[in-house]
Amino acid sequence: MGSVKAELLRLWKWPATWVLIGVWLVMSLTFGYLFNYLALNGGTNTRDLSQQQLISSMQPENVGAAVVRGLPMFGGAIILVLAALAVGSGYGWGTWKTTLTAGPRRVSAMAGTVGALAVIVVVLVALTFLVDLGAAITVASLEGWDWSLPGTAVVEPLAASLLIAAMWTGFGVFLGIVTKGPALAVGLGLMWAIVTENLLRGVGALLGPVESLTKVLPGGSAGNLAGAVGGSGAPGVLNDLGGTTAALFLVGYVVFFLGTATLLKVRRDLV
């Protein structure tokens, strides 16, 4: 518990935590509401979205879908960066050395970091939900729509959001530990989340096995889960797998990333 408190204190007071959360909230509002609102009011090109789809995507009762659809790619990338920075920076600052000589077992120290990151991620998803809900209510009121608050059905997309966020957090932790620094971890993570999987999807159009693989890669699994719980109209959201299958893959990734990272942390010399 002491390790979680320690990590939470330092992550809570870390400007990078709030900068990244702030950037994500601005992105979520801009792409989820502002652009859709402008398109609805005088936009000349609304892509393949009908007016009814735009209105539906901004309804307060659909805010759960609005939260989850941003996480498979851009939201996930931001969470990955946060986790990779939180873990990788400790090597450059020498704080891992201080942490591991303070008393707790290495497993406890890792659990403290992961536990604190989990709290931060829950805060991020909760803030996204609240900010999106506020935006949705504002738009609905401005437009004079009949609207209602989201019902219990919102639990499913929010739970999916947390699982997707947990996977990206695990990926960031894994990269931070493997590369023993923040720069390479962030670079590799961003490249994977935004470039590599998209390139593979492109190749998948030509090669069947690659296409099958892309559906179950970390981003693909996240996109499929988001698609299965109602997320749509955002980059990275897919509809190739069932929700349960996608969720199981994500759980597998969380276990693999955090398990491998912990094993490396416990067994490797800190020089």
Partner: peptide
């Protein structure tokens, strides 16, 4: 090895928790 963005006191508080 301390967190550069925290004060001296907060760094010690983090360490004290551990």
């Amino acid at each position: 090895g301390f967190y550069p963005y925290l004060s001296g006191r907060d760094n010690l508080r983090v360490h004290a928790h551990r």
